[in-house]
Nucleic acid binder design. Sequence first.
DNA 1: GAAGCTGATTCAATGAATGAACCTAGGGTG
DNA 2: CACCCTAGGTTCATTCATTGAATCAGCTTC
Lengths: 185, 185
Amino acid sequence: MVTVDGMALGRDYATQECSIARALEVVGERWTLLVIRDALYGVRRYNDFLVHLGIPRAVLAARLQTLTAEGILDKRRYQESPPRDEYVITDRGIALWPTLRSLGLWGREHFGEAPLRTFQHSVCGTELGTYGECPTCATAVPVEDVVMVPGPGLDPDPADPISRILLKPKRLLEPIEQPAAADPV
Amino acid sequence: MVTVDGMALGRDYATQECSIARALEVVGERWTLLVIRDALYGVRRYNDFLVHLGIPRAVLAARLQTLTAEGILDKRRYQESPPRDEYVITDRGIALWPTLRSLGLWGREHFGEAPLRTFQHSVCGTELGTYGECPTCATAVPVEDVVMVPGPGLDPDPADPISRILLKPKRLLEPIEQPAAADPV
DNA sequence: GAAGCTGATTCAATGAATGAACCTAGGGTG
DNA sequence: CACCCTAGGTTCATTCATTGAATCAGCTTC
């Protein structure tokens, strides 16, 4: 019975007086930032996260709950019969875009061979800078004005349906289109 | 086959074709980003990381080894007798500054009460923007021109000596001054 | 030669992640 | 009604990572 309410010593970064440590307590767990990335891409449903991330179900359920509790995702009912919920990213989650943008750019520059996806300003088509700004327009670009454009490094025939949908250019935050009916090729 | 040897399936984010996932495979483990943060603050020695982070020794050793192998830290000898090594952040590690800056700002804005530290452009004193740029000078600020200034939210009498040194304003990357001799109060 | 500093490694106990199986509630079809 | 399907989970045994304490090794100073 070593239970301590909230956060126990040794399990978090409690001794760190630092906003970075604070942030990492919220989004620093395994899978969490990838869930937020997917939410920015427009993924909203349990099953879509599941197949796109290849995450264990138990971990996904735990992360969705934590992120909802932290105000990063918003769990909302999108149909009543049968009752179905979706997880929509909030402003607090959207505010992580500069972090994810710069992290992705770092990964691409230092570890990527071919650019997998580029992110462009929908107004002018310029690729975004390090933190998600537009070098051409010299302004911060609202996340809803960012277009994700798949690059040549992507697998042209991925296994899961969400990756297949993400092969087409797409605005961030825009919900991914659900396949209307089973219509096998 | 996107497999990179050294990473086993299921333990990493191998199925993710994404630069963010790639980056998180390198810096996404527990403690790793805090080690890099400390390295940016000028921490270089095993013992300084140890006492400042409150990290288990085994984990610190593992992280330092991984980060050195990934080219984020550079292990170099700083004295021969007795042989002593220090871990100095590389350009690849410095390139993570925008990520850490935006993550810290997010943590402060959404979870922090009082600003713990501010980061200013040494040339003009302006607080940096989201990704570490200077709004006044309208330029990207090299990390060595960033001054970390402690804020009012910090514990004025922290336990470990590194935190005590970090109570004074200090340029990033500049190595922390080692206490010359034991001089107890 | 005893003690100290630095930079580690080893080890038992705990906690988290994984993957497979199972569960629930509501629909749709025959 | 029986049956299968889908969406969104929970449960559980196994594996893996983290933790904190103890120990170690090289070198120096007293």
